[in-house]
Amino acid sequence: MESNKINYVELPARDLSLNKAFFSKVFGWGFQDYGEGYTAFENAGLDGGFFQADFCSRPQNGAALVVLYHDDLASLIPKVKAAGGHIEQEIFEFPGGSRFHFLDPCGNEWAVWCKKG
């Protein structure tokens, strides 16, 4: 472990099964369950997990926004929708690239970005 670096992130999920299925289908993540109320995700670029909760993580409520990277945003949007996600903000450009925001099936907001070509 490296000191002073972000090591782990935990996010709420109203339904662990829904989020596990969603992130497995769309992003290829694996999961390791730890009891009924917690699952850790694997192959996500950063260690972390989902805990059972009746609330969700949204930046407008003061939560941090987790941003993923993908080489082809346009090809990812149909996968997000087909797996039960909701596009919260369509693809937009910003200095250095473009991104979109989506809600996972439990209502947590995420972003996905791509570098400018």
Rank of each mutant, 00 (worst) to 15 (best):
F50N: 03
F27G: 00
F31C: 07
A13Q: 03
C114T: 15
Q52A: 15
G85N: 06
D33G: 01
K5R: 12
F51M: 14
E93A: 13
L46V: 15
I6W: 05
H101T: 04
S75Q: 14
F50T: 03
I6N: 02
Q32S: 12
Q60N: 13
P95A: 11
S24R: 10
K20F: 01
Y38I: 03
V112A: 02
Y69I: 15
L76E: 01
F41L: 13
L73I: 14
G35Y: 07
G107V: 10
N43F: 07
K20Q: 15
R58E: 15
F102W: 01
A63H: 10
F100P: 00
V9P: 03
L68C: 09
G48C: 09
A82K: 13
F102Q: 00
E88F: 12
A21G: 09
R99Q: 12
S24Y: 00
Y69C: 03
N4L: 08
N61D: 12
Q60C: 11
P105G: 04
A21D: 14
G30K: 15
D33Q: 11
N4I: 07
E10P: 10
L11E: 05
I91A: 06
D54C: 04
C56Q: 07
G107D: 03
N19F: 06
G107I: 03
Q52G: 08
S57A: 14
K116V: 14
C56H: 06
F102V: 02
G96E: 05
D54S: 12
K81H: 01
F92R: 12
G107F: 06
Q60T: 15
E109Y: 01
G30N: 12
Q89G: 02
W110G: 00
A21V: 06
E10S: 12
I77S: 02
D72C: 08
E88D: 14
S17M: 08
N43Y: 03
G96F: 04
R99E: 07
F50V: 06
W29C: 00
N108L: 08
Y38G: 09
N4Q: 12
N19A: 01
R99Y: 05
N108Q: 10
K20R: 14
Q52N: 15
G97D: 09
A40G: 14
R58I: 13
E36G: 13
A82C: 06
N19S: 11
T39Q: 12
F102N: 06
E90D: 15
L16P: 09
N19D: 09
M1N: 10
C106D: 15
A40W: 03
Y34L: 09
W113F: 08
K25A: 11
G48M: 07
G49Q: 08
E93C: 11
K81E: 13
F27L: 08
Y34S: 13
L18P: 00
D54F: 10
G96S: 07
Y69L: 11
F51Q: 11
F23V: 01
Y38C: 07
W113E: 08
C106V: 03
N4A: 08
E88I: 01
H101R: 12
E42P: 03
F22C: 03
Y8W: 10
Q60H: 13
L76C: 06
P59S: 12
S75D: 13
T39S: 15
V112Y: 00
G117H: 09
A21I: 10
N61L: 10
G28M: 08
C56G: 01
G107T: 07
P59C: 05
A83S: 04
D104A: 07
L11S: 08
Y8C: 10
